[in-house]
């Protein structure tokens, strides 16, 4: 679906940016959208049997179900947090991250200075943009949920960059990476719960 590639790339980058800049509901919904769009970008073109895509979506689905905080789907709060004005305000409050995403996108459009060229500039641009957006909070954030989301954004970016050069993952590697996504989400969620419980007891 080459015609959908560019919109998916833009959606993935926007969702990745929101996943690391928003808090609470907006961030988790953005993460879910990032996961869907990056998985579709990674597997749809080169994997005719779709096993990789199914594995990835199932794994992220399970991970999100476990990791999602309680009361996420309260209708009114969800509408408030996902309102366009709220999202725009969040992006305006984090100009450095937005600038990083745009810079990553532009940087990714330039061919690699290596003798192997990407078959898909769009995938490479998305991969590098997500890496640029995800790595700083992964390295520096002291908040567990934010770090977990940054880890997912970084891993999604890494896999997109890899796919842009090597094509879709083989089924065994796809299984390992899918397990990794679940693992990051589940462990991140469990650590966050445990620390808040321990602090509550104290």
């Amino acid at each position: 679906m080459p015609s959908l590639e560019l919109p998916l790339v833009l959606i993935a980058i926007l969702a990745g940016t929101l996943a690391v800049t928003s808090a609470g509901r907006g961030a988790w919904v953005a993460l879910a959208i990032l996961s869907l769009s990056s998985s579709a970008l990674e597997f749809s073109v080169a994997d005719p049997d779709r096993i990789g895509l199914i594995l990835r979506l199932s794994a992220i689905g399970i991970g999100l179900v476990v990791a999602l905080p309680e009361n996420l789907f309260e209708g009114q709060a969800l509408r408030r947090d996902l309102a366009l004005t709220a999202l725009v305000r969040t992006l305006r409050e984090h100009p450095v991250v937005v600038a990083s995403a745009i810079a990553g996108l532009l940087l990714g459009l330039v061919p690699l200075a290596l003798p192997i060229e990407s078959s898909s500039d769009a995938l490479r641009a998305a991969g590098i943009a997500l890496l640029v957006v995800g790595l700083p909070p992964l390295l520096t954030s002291r908040f567990i949920e934010a770090t977990t989301r940054a880890a997912v954004v970084t891993l999604a970016g890494t896999m997109l960059l890899r796919t842009s050069i090597f094509g879709a993952l083989d089924s065994l590697t796809a299984l390992a990476i899918a397990a990794g996504f679940t693992c990051i989400l589940v462990v991140g969620g469990s650590v966050a719960t445990r620390i808040s419980n321990a602090e509550g007891e104290r």
Binding site: L138, L139, I144, T147, A151, I184, V187, I195, A198, E199
Partner: peptide, 18 residues
């Protein structure tokens, strides 16, 4: 619910992701 344990796992999560 041990903060020390949870922080050790958190450190591991960051390391693996990097």
């Amino acid at each position: 619910d041990d903060v020390g344990r949870a922080r050790a796992v958190f450190r591991d999560l960051r390391t693996v992701s990097l």
